[in-house]
Design a protein around this nucleic acid. Structure first.
Lengths: 136, 136
DNA sequence: AGTTGACTTAAAGTCGACTTTAACTTGCAT
DNA sequence: ATGCAAGTTAAAGTCGACTTTAAGTCAACT
């Protein structure tokens, strides 16, 4: 199928599909004249990539995670990423609870509500990851 | 306190703090000479903003959510954002489960595993939000 | 044979969220 | 009084993830 059909089935613009191919996240199976031809499997791959984007993975990250690079699936990497998501779920949940509470709470400002403050300060200290300060 | 102290306590670079002020997300209480002075409360605000960034809110979004704009707290907006996060938690959880499974599963490729495929296709159809196609 | 509509490319542009740079100012310790 | 560390500004730069543009190609239909 050519790129227009992939676009229709995936809901993504053709430009995005070309961009992902240029980054090596997906591959075409060949050309029909100039036109890229894709296999049906690419639809699932694109769905996975889109979900990955929404959960906050970068394209580079995903090309490491999802490329069958001939060798083996990097099971450790996948497990690590799963653990990262698990952490993130906790943050999302904290924020969700905070917002839900703030939407009900009668305090004049969120910052006057002890419950909201507790949530906020629980989430603090994440900006201090000194370990990752290895700039290049 | 001046910006260096805020930077120390929040873990954010001074440039980021200035940037947030320029966007109206936080406010200084005045100047000591040229230097901005901040109240202690800004530390909590910055923690909230940082958490907001991590859960995927944009700065513009947060300036709507977290500004006491004289009038009232927009409870509906906050409840809506809480609901959005709730949706996102479901997606994160799906992806986490998929990755966890992929890390164990013995299928040669993720896309040959029916369980993984089911997860991926459950997450599809999010790229079709035709309603939001109001460009501009 | 000619037209058309769907594709092609490379290069430039956009957007959000910052960071970096360069030149300048100033409160405070010596 | 002087020096300097810590701050200031405006403007430009960066990065990731795309989109847009402009000029060209081509398979297929009439």
């Amino acid at each position: 199928m050519d790129i227009g059909e992939v676009a229709r089935q995936s809901g993504l613009p053709a430009s995005t599909i070309r961009y992902y191919e240029s980054k090596g996240l997906i591959h075409s199976v060949g050309r029909h004249g100039l036109r890229r031809q894709f296999s049906a499997g690419v639809i699932n791959q694109l769905a996975l990539i889109s979900l990955g984007c929404r959960v906050g993975f970068s394209l580079d990250e995903m090309s490491l995670m999802f490329t069958a690079d001939g060798t083996q699936i990097n099971r450790q990497l996948l497990a690590d990423k799963a653990a990262e998501l698990d952490e993130k779920v906790k943050e999302l949940t904290m924020m969700r609870d905070g917002l839900q509470h703030a939407a009900m709470c009668r305090a004049a400002s969120h910052f006057e509500c002890p419950k909201f403050l507790r949530i906020v300060s629980m989430s603090a200290r994440k900006n201090f990851r000194t370990i990752n300060k290895l700039k290049k």
